[in-house]
């Protein structure tokens, strides 16, 4: 597991985003155990204090929970998990719309292209399996 960090966003924010993506992808099940702070720092090659900060923030957001001395786990709250996925999709769509806007293309044309590209790519992915 590695992340290509950018240098301008706080690292802890990027770590949270990474975990949200993993949740959205279904890499983590509700209630599943996640790596400890120290393991995560080591895996992602980041400062242990930063990993600590990310975990604290995720706990406050209700994404993960920690009971006593047990390892941290992904929340079992389906509503929160659904939100994570939606949040990421909306973010991606907003970003996409932003870049489309600057070239001023009709929506229908774009959607057609998106569909074509997407099908082609998932076709390739199928073949390579």
């Amino acid at each position: 597991m590695t992340i290509n960090f950018n240098n301008r966003d706080p690292v802890y924010v990027q770590v949270i985003r990474h975990l949200k993506e993993q949740i959205a992808k279904g890499f983590y099940e509700p209630g599943q155990e996640i790596p400890s702070r120290r393991e995560l720092a080591n895996q992602l090659k980041i400062n242990p204090n930063t990993a600590q900060r990310a975990y604290k923030e995720m706990e406050e957001q209700g994404l993960i929970f920690t009971e006593g001395n047990m390892p941290s786990c992904i929340t079992k709250d389906e509503a929160v998990l659904k939100n994570v996925r939606e949040e990421l999709i909306i973010e991606a769509v907003d970003l996409f719309l932003g870049s489309i806007k600057s070239i001023d293309v009709p929506l229908a044309e774009v959607l057609e292209l998106v569909k074509k590209k997407h099908d082609a790519e998932s076709g390739e992915a199928e073949e390579s399996k």
Binding site: R38, A41, N42, L44, K45, I46, N47, P48
Partner: peptide, 8 residues
């Protein structure tokens, strides 16, 4: 060496 910095 950088890895050492992320460890215990």
């Amino acid at each position: 060496i950088a890895e050492v910095f992320t460890s215990h």
